[in-house]
């Protein structure tokens, strides 16, 4: 089994991990706020972990909604990105995993940014976030700012995996750990 399937696996490691949330489909505001609120009612989460997972979840879910190459048209005419969101619990961590197809053109800057993020310590990341946030040439909803915030909140590296689908598209999977 390749690692992407391991990341998204629902049934391979039930003895060592529990699935707390599993969703696959269109990711619009309604789903994001519903699942976001649901994080607050999961009994197993500590207050600190809940707050962190909530913040990380919103950024990652928004990225699926805006940047997934798999678009779904809803009844109200809006087109939203579709993808997979899983919250797993292991002995030591909670792991939020998202997966969605992404256009290869969008992939290169995300990969470069993620590599950069993973090479920075906490204080350097804060400085990087400030630099990116005040750079008016970067779009306000750029996924790069969101990923910096995700890494800062998590306190762990971004675990990214890419699997090519065809010449134009790849499957993008991101796992983020939050310590218990």
């Amino acid at each position: 089994m390749n690692t992407i399937n391991k990341k998204l696996s629902l049934g391979q490691s039930l003895f060592s991990e529990e699935i707390r949330i599993s969703y696959k489909g269109p990711v619009d505001g309604k789903i994001i706020t519903f699942l976001g609120d649901y994080i607050y009612v999961i009994n197993e989460l500590s207050e600190k972990a809940t707050r962190k997972i909530f913040k990380i979840f919103f950024e990652l879910a928004e990225n699926i909604s805006k940047y997934s190459a798999d678009k779904i048209k809803l009844k109200d005419g809006k087109e939203v990105g579709s993808g997979t969101i899983i919250l797993k619990e292991t002995v030591q961590n909670f792991i939020l995993v998202t997966g969605n197809p992404i256009k290869n053109n969008d992939l290169i800057p995300v990969m470069e940014n993620s590599k950069n993020i993973n090479n920075l310590g906490h204080d350097e990341l804060r400085e990087y976030k400030r630099e990116v946030r005040k750079d008016n040439t970067i779009k306000k909803d750029s996924p790069n700012i969101g990923l910096i915030a995700v890494a800062l909140t998590s306190g762990n590296p971004l675990d990214i995996e890419i699997n090519p689908i065809d010449d134009e598209t790849s499957y993008f999977s991101l796992a983020v750990k939050v310590d218990k």
Partner: peptide, 12 residues
């Protein structure tokens, strides 16, 4: 109590 990163730019 919560704001996303898009909002963080507007707060700035």
């Amino acid at each position: 109590t919560y704001f996303n990163t898009s909002t963080s730019r507007s707060i700035l």
